Amino acid sequence: MSETGCHRRSVETTIRPPSNRVSPRAVRYWTVRAVPGWLVVTAVQVIWLVSSGQDVAAHVAGLVVTALLAAAHLIVMPRWRFRVHRWETTPEAVYTQSGWFKQEWRIAPVSRIQTVDSDRGPFEQIFGLSNVTVTTASAAGPLKISGLDKETAQRVVSELTASAQATAGDAT
């Protein structure tokens, strides 16, 4: 017992990635979402090739390089993101890990949660995906869990809302 008469609990925290992966459908979603950018780059190169009529070999080489880069990006990026993107909620905190090129790991105590939202854009609706946004008083901004299936997102929103309401604290 300490001098104040209170027992101190020793809690060991292990730094580890959050345990839950996003929906496997997120791989297809991220792939489809990346395609328009590559189509724009390719269209610009084709227009330049057709309109200039000069140095055709260099333009064709540029198109080949673009096609190879696009293929590599569309194959690697979504799968890499799927391996990295993780999330977890516990009675004490929300954990997120995201990114593919620049990776970010965030933890927010449940006592700091101010709002919990879910959203689904048109393409996410096509793929049956939802996003959960957890807003806290942090200057770093909200935590976002992207690529969840609709049912999981609804469950997470309900559970986090209930946990935040049951947790003592002022969420600031």
Rank of each mutant, 00 (worst) to 15 (best):
P24Q: 04
R25N: 12
R25P: 03
A26V: 13
A26E: 11
R33D: 13
A34H: 02
V35R: 02
P36Y: 05
W38I: 05
A43Y: 04
A43L: 15
A43V: 14
V44W: 00
V44P: 02
I47A: 15
I47E: 08
S51R: 13
Q54W: 11
D55V: 06
A57Y: 05
A58C: 02
G62R: 00
L63E: 00
L63T: 00
V65I: 15
T66D: 00
A71S: 14
L74S: 05
V76T: 01
M77R: 11
P78T: 07
W80D: 09
R83I: 04
R83N: 08
R83M: 08
R86N: 04
E88A: 06
P91Q: 11
E92Q: 14
A93C: 09
Y95I: 04
S98M: 06
S98W: 03
F101P: 00
F101Q: 05
Q103R: 15
E104C: 03
E104D: 09
R106W: 06
I107Y: 12
I107F: 08
I107Q: 12
V110L: 00
R112I: 05
I113R: 00
D117T: 13
D119K: 06
R120C: 04
R120P: 04
R120T: 13
G121R: 06
G121F: 00
L129F: 10
S130I: 06
N131A: 14
N131G: 08
T136H: 03
S138I: 07
S138A: 14
A139T: 13
A139S: 15
A139L: 11
K144C: 11
K144M: 13
K144I: 15
S146Y: 10
L148Q: 13
K150G: 09
T152H: 12
A153W: 06
Q154K: 15
